[in-house]
């Protein structure tokens, strides 16, 4: 990829364009656009599965834990016929996977055939039983959203650092793409204008309406009006909930 295209990928103008383009798609129904996105990621996962000589894969998405709610892990995509395998694996390992993703970025190798190969590898080795097969789990922590794992079951290929980092990079791409699609589909509150976002941001920083008005050269009432319209657009009941929603949606920092 050229440097030009990297920069363009994240340029602000293109982003707004994307959300505008995708807005009508929502009206046609989520099912259609979701189906399209799944279809795009599937072949990538199949290619990766072949690289590590595995027979089944699964893509897990993870909801971050908070002090009140435990984290959630769910299977977003899997190779056909792997339901039983994935369910059993999650039953045994969901807790471990949740703990791992928020403590380490290292890939996990379950029951490697040759454990010595991992003496000087960033990979994290886990033994679940004497005659269990080799599985791979690649954690992807993008931030507060889009986190998950890519799993490969019964990996038959000879594993080494090179193959692991290659698969891990591809896992990153897959989850990043998934987040891009998901956000394009669910970005309901993107029609906030600059002033509304600015005021929300300042409230989130702990300023009162009076102080914001002074800083932005607006009257208190105007500031409150912006905050009110932002609250309505975010479908929140008051400005405090609007702040919480705006941060979760990534509209303000």
């Amino acid at each position: 990829m050229t440097k030009g295209s990297i920069l363009k990928d994240f340029g602000a103008p293109q982003d707004t364009q994307n959300t505008q383009e995708r807005a009508p798609e929502r009206l046609n129904g989520d099912a259609i656009s979701n189906a399209a996105s799944t279809a795009d990621l599937f072949p990538k996962l199949v290619t990766m599965q072949r690289l590590c000589g595995s027979r089944d894969f699964a893509l897990l998405s993870i909801q971050a834990h908070t002090l009140l709610k435990p984290g959630q892990i769910e299977c977003a995509m899997q190779s056909s016929g792997s339901q039983a395998l994935v369910n059993k694996f999650l039953l045994d390992n969901a807790e471990f996977l949740l703990k791992h993703i928020y403590s380490s970025p290292a890939p996990i190798v379950f029951n490697p055939k040759d454990a010595r190969a991992f003496d000087t590898s960033p990979a994290f080795v886990v033994h679940t039983g004497p005659d269990d097969a080799t599985h791979l789990a690649f954690p992807v922590q993008l931030g507060t959203m889009g986190n998950g794992f890519v799993l490969f079951f019964n990996a038959g290929a000879v594993l080494n650092n090179d193959l692991l980092i290659d698969l891990h990079r591809k896992s990153l791409t897959v989850l990043r793409e998934k987040l891009r699609l998901a956000f394009g589909i669910s970005a309901g509150a993107e029609n906030l204008n600059d002033r509304e976002i600015e005021c929300l941001q300042l409230v989130g920083n702990g300023m009162k309406s009076e102080a914001i008005g002074e800083q932005l050269n607006l009257s208190v009432h105007t500031v409150n009006a912006y905050l009110g319209s932002a609250t309505t657009k975010l479908n929140a009941v008051n400005r405090i909930q609007a702040i919480a929603k705006a941060i979760r949606l990534g509209i303000i920092a």
């Binding site: 990297i6 982003d15 993008l142 507060t144 990534g250």
Partner: peptide, 18 residues
């Protein structure tokens, strides 16, 4: 980095920019 919106931050994670 702190001013970037969360979604964009997530999309940029692990991706080199210049």
């Amino acid at each position: 980095e702190a001013r970037t919106s969360e979604v964009r931050r997530c999309l940029q994670a692990f991706e080199p920019t210049f």
